[in-house]
Write a protein that binds this DNA or RNA. Structure first.
Length: 316
DNA sequence: TGGGTATGTCCAC
DNA sequence: TGGACCTACCCAT
């Protein structure tokens, strides 16, 4: 599950591969049949991502709003961006099946634990001879062009909105560094006016959009900041530095498709971090393991309803 | 086969 | 604060 970086990548994927031709919109699962009918046959003219929310604009001024929640995923297939369709096979006739692999550019957002597995199983039959491919699993909505298909599974939100409703949704969100490059002031203000732990504020999408449980823990460690520090006690320069580090990590995540939070790594260390989902972070999901800096066991506690990880010695 | 887990959010109490 | 909801996989039994 996607924190902000994957949603931006998904929006980019739609911009690359789905804008232009009319789109057949359906709900194989049957739980979005009425909504699909309102969009069916119209072209996508724009895709946007704000925080963890994605919006697709259709040519009759209706939008599809999607929030993937904890389990949501898009599976893309067909003549999608990069190569894997050879020149002689263009047009989607021998489209490449898409795996839910975190490292694949074609499938973004599946639960991390399932990704490798799903990719492995789908790579057993990487070429499909039937177009369009059969939906896999519970597909809430399918977007199909002559050459590309996107299947949405397990979203928290999938609904049709007017532009007014889109604007209202976005207005409720805090700044997203990729949407609001000048959002630093808003972020600092949002943080410093509240007597709430910074570890809680970073998860609040009205304070800053796009941060989830992994980036929260990693940002706080990178800043060597005690998660329980009240926002109003954060010096302005510390708050500014948090925003800038988030902007940096988000950009890095969008470019690489991975949550690379130990970005100082080089060579073999970097390759190991990329390869191992469990050996990739400073503190996230490392309860009881030695801090990579000082060796103190990483602590864990529930904050804002989610497991928070931190080094009790380095983060003060 | 069934319980546990997951990068999220909302709502009732 | 706890539960509900969305889906699929992992692992122990």
């Amino acid at each position: 599950m996607p924190e902000g970086h994957s949603v931006h990548r998904i929006a980019r994927q739609f911009a690359r591969s789905f804008t232009g031709p009319p789109v057949a919109v359906s709900s194989p699962q049957g739980r979005f049949t009425a909504g699909a009918a309102r969009l069916d046959g119209h072209a996508i003219v724009q895709s946007r991502a704000v925080g963890k929310q994605m919006f697709l604009e259709f040519d009759h001024h209706l939008w599809l709003r999607v929030h993937l929640g904890m389990y949501g995923a898009w599976d893309f297939a067909g003549d999608i961006a990069v190569d894997p369709v050879s020149p002689g096979e263009r047009g989607g006739r021998a489209a490449k099946v898409v795996g839910a692999n975190e490292d694949s550019p074609w499938s973004i957002g599946a639960p991390r634990r399932t990704r490798l597995r799903m990719a492995e199983s789908e790579q057993l039959q990487p070429e499909i001879n039937v177009w369009p491919p059969e939906p896999i699993g519970q597909v809430r909505v399918r977007l199909l062009t002559p050459v590309a298909v996107a299947d949405l599974r397990g979203p928290t939100v999938c609904e049709v909105q007017t532009i007014e409703e889109v604007d209202a949704t976005i207005a409720r969100l805090g700044p997203d560094p990729l949407v609001d490059p000048d959002g630093e002031g808003r972020f600092v203000e949002n943080v410093r006016r509240r007597n709430v732990a910074i570890g809680q504020l970073l998860m609040d999408q009205e304070v800053v959009a796009g941060i989830g449980n992994v980036y929260r823990a990693e940002l706080l460690f990178r800043a060597r900041l005690d998660p329980y520090t009240p926002g109003k006690d954060l010096p302005t320069d510390v708050a500014r530095a948090l925003w800038r580090d988030w902007a940096y990590l988000l950009k890095l995540g969008v470019e690489t498709g991975q949550m690379l939070t130990m970005d100082g790594l080089e060579g073999e260390d970097l390759e190991r971090a990329k390869a191992s989902r469990d050996d990739r972070h400073w503190v996230y999901h490392r309860t009881g393991e030695p801090c990579r800096v000082c060796g103190t066991p990483i602590a864990m506690a529930v904050m804002a309803g989610r497991n928070l990880y931190w080094c009790p010695k380095d983060q003060v």
